[in-house]
Design a protein around this nucleic acid. Structure first.
Lengths: 179, 179
DNA sequence: GTTCGCATGTAAAGAGTTACATGATTGT
DNA sequence: ACAATCATGTAACTCTTTACATGCGAAC
């Protein structure tokens, strides 16, 4: 069996949500998975092509006068199987996130306390904005029938984002005091 | 002025700590920056070469009979300037960390509750191991004269790691209950 | 005698972003 | 007129890892 990377499985998974075209997938990702998985068109379109070539998805091309074609991708049973296989595979690595703020603070000895403080302040603001975004998405999902289907799982991931972001905000505050 | 990426600045910064060779840099990174910045030899050696070519560092090669040469790199004043300039530049992006666990949980509808639970359990174990690693490094740094020099800043980054990891562990526990 | 630590480096492959190209429609 | 949204896609570039190549000395 071919090997795919996690990004490919992300796309495979999104196809189960009813988002069918490359464009749809990008939209959906920007709204829902953005806090833990980003992706660009430069990956989406070639990946969809490959999925189709290898029988994990089939495509329906709708020609619409004037407008560009709209290609809708659908998972095949082989595709569904591949997704489930991947879901079952144990975790490989919990990869360290790269954090520019920590990297700069690590070398903070070489700058003034004020500079370190403004770095933390800037970071805190971005984290707070992120936190609000999570709350907004949460409200959108929570609305209708959130006890069923995908919604509970989506809310779990948002809860993660909120908790971790909250912890980071607290750290910013505490660290500013210690400087 | 040339443009460098954050990885290059990480190496530049490490040169201020007294770690001089490519090998030293890798060792130091694996011990101290591992939780927010990883790097491979494939990046270190070419980067050091470039730093030297562009005058940010100079190199002293020690030929030792039998053994391979040992190259020690030292920051030039130009290199120190470049590091300080980078430290002052505002944050560009707080890039979303990619998280395989969240990605799998997001599509949790397509697997059994038991499978989702074991995913979380596995993740929790890795996080707890990570937490312990942070505590061990913390103890090593805390030992001698930790009020001076780089130590306080290094402890800040470890505190971040601990807080965020703790939040993630809590989330694992809570989410397992909700499944 | 084999593995581990020291110590350097390169080549190839994979992953991912950015910029570009095309072109219709809709709203300001 | 101009920008935004819809919609597809490719090429070039950057970043990063992995695998390989070399070879000594010490420990087991």
């Amino acid at each position: 069996m071919e090997k795919y990377n996690d990004t490919t499985y992300a796309i495979l998974g999104i196809l189960t949500t009813g988002n069918r075209s490359g464009y749809d997938i990008k939209q959906f990702m920007d709204q829902s998975l953005n806090h833990f998985w980003k992706i660009s068109y430069g990956q989406i379109y070639p990946t969809l092509k490959r999925l189709e070539q290898e029988g994990l998805a089939r495509v329906e091309t709708a020609s619409r006068e004037g407008k560009p074609d709209r290609k809708a991708y659908f998972l095949t049973s082989k595709g569904e199987g591949a997704l489930k296989d991947w879901l079952e595979t144990p975790l490989q690595n919990v990869p360290a996130e790269r954090n520019e703020v920590l990297l700069k603070l690590f070398f903070g000895r070489h700058q003034s306390k004020e500079q370190s403080a403004s770095l933390l302040k800037e970071y805190k603001q971005k984290l707070e904005a992120q936190y609000e975004t999570y709350e907004q998405i949460e409200m959108m999902i929570s609305g209708d029938g959130c006890e069923e289907g995908d919604a509970p799982y989506w809310l779990f991931t948002l809860d993660y984002g909120k908790r971790v972001t909250r912890a980071a905000i607290d750290w910013c505050e505490e660290t500013m005091k210690k400087l």
